[in-house]
Design a protein around this nucleic acid. Structure first.
Lengths: 269, 269
DNA sequence: CAGCTATTCACTCACTTAATCACAATACTT
DNA sequence: AAGTATTGTGATTAAGTGAGTGAATAGCTG
């Protein structure tokens, strides 16, 4: 009845709907109803592959959620809202959730989130690491030293650097690939380049970041070689904050030495 | 240790986190970690009221989601991201979900979503009815006739009316309460007022809407009197589309008669 | 009225998740 | 250095949720 690409669309739609909190039956029923436009319990049962006797529950759930309208005839018919409306609907619901959540959490957060720590924290996952990097960069008052692999320089990061640069924070970027440099030159004209410690492009290193000589983060790209599915969870980072933090101390000396050497126009290694 | 308001904040936060897809343990652990800022499994177990041996799983789940970073010490310590970051994090995740969903659904939607229907569909819930109203108004090509109870005139609706008015759609508003009229006069200066059929403010009626003499919706405010919790699900609407649709036909004649009478400056009833 | 269909309800089964326990590994104390 | 306390991991049990099935009721059609 339906081809392969259509089936795939179905299953991803069902997956997302379930993740959005619908039951399997409700998700399948909704997808069927969208592709049918309108239909009876029997129709839906066939297309959605949901037991006929359970379509009513599923449709009820959908009606409660406001995704489906009901016609009180016999047999009763169901009608699905448009995809755009569905999108808006979920967005609204979600915004509300997040607002309520952050409000509640803000009431709980203690006054002093310590600014001096002993050890280092680990973060996993490319997107998550990016989040930390953005947090760090955004919090900069004075100076940022940053080295990054090309593939990890997202628009988000570039934009973030540009913002703090406008705020007057001095930015030092390690020598990286041509394209990265060119890109940043455009977005962050005030950034100063310096010679990299390593041959950056040949290491599996991800990023090095130091903010205000006070917060540091270093990441590496892991697996990607020995793993079966090409997971996006392919970056691992450690970070630490505080003047006495060991990671901070190490990177600070490293960078200081590096930057000083560079200032004397000496090419190191 | 913590007062009543704080406890309430905790429980709502936990509720939202669970709705966002976390397990109860993970949700409780995260909330505890936010109010602690940082802590060991033991600390969390006490504050979160989660069995100590399960805190590790919960923290793992949170770490995978990118909400918590881990310190590899002994005992290992956990650190929660800031509430703002958490908010951004969920927003991003959600935007992605909705995008994927709508893309998939758009592939499934059939070419012809019929424009001619027999019966009437029912919708429940104030927000959901508003969604339909917005859909209808947005789709207007020619003319809108609208009557609404004051409390139901949200900013969203006013804005929507204003948009289509700019597009050249003629808008006729029934006589309503002073404040509603004043408000719309400002947002939608081109709208023409006409005398209402009923003494609008004294009926439990919600809204009447006719778009292009082709789509109609009528809603009433239900319960709100006999129900124990003041539920927001207090509006029920029916709608139908098509020239031959019975509801459309009825409302069309009603409005036409009404508007014609009004044009002759006759006050009806 | 008879036969069919639609709808609801009650129940089973399977699976996820909460909760406890037992044990191994590690750190701390004297 | 040995003993004790604490941390982390895994296995196990219990409870709850949701998928799936069938029977019973209500409603329609001819």
């Amino acid at each position: 009845m339906s081809g392969d690409p259509s089936d795939q669309a179905r299953s991803t739609a069902v997956k997302q709907l379930k993740a959005l909190g619908l039951s399997t039956y409700a998700a399948r029923t909704f997808v069927a109803l969208v592709s049918l436009g309108e239909g009876t319990a029997r129709d839906l049962s066939e297309v959605a592959d949901v037991p006929r006797t359970r379509v009513y529950d599923a449709a009820g759930e959908l009606h409660n959620r406001g995704l489906v309208d009901v016609k009180q005839s016999s047999p009763q018919r169901y009608w699905a809202i448009s995809t755009e409306t569905a999108g808006r609907h979920f967005e609204q619901e979600y915004d509300h959730r997040v607002t309520v959540l952050t409000d509640a959490l803000d009431q709980l957060v203690p006054a002093n989130r310590s600014t001096e720590q002993q050890g280092v924290w680990t973060v996993t996952g490319r997107d998550t690491v990016t989040e930390r990097v953005v947090d760090f960069i955004s919090s900069a008052d004075d100076e940022i030293v940053y080295m990054t692999a090309e593939e990890l320089l997202t628009d988000e990061i570039a934009e973030c650097l540009s913002t703090v640069s406008d705020r007057g924070v001095s930015i030092r970027l390690a020598e990286m690939s041509q394209s990265v440099e060119a890109r940043l030159e455009q977005d962050v004209p005030d950034a100063k380049l310096f010679e990299s410690l390593w041959n950056w492009s040949e290491t599996p290193a991800g990023r090095l970041l130091m903010v205000d000589q006070n917060k540091t983060l270093v990441s590496v790209l892991v697996d990607g070689n020995g793993e079966h599915p090409p997971e996006p969870r392919d970056e691992t980072a450690i970070w630490g904050v505080g003047q006495t933090n060991s990671l901070v101390v190490v990177l600070k000396t490293l960078f200081t030495w590096q930057l000083d050497n560079n200032r004397d126009s000496q090419d190191v290694r």
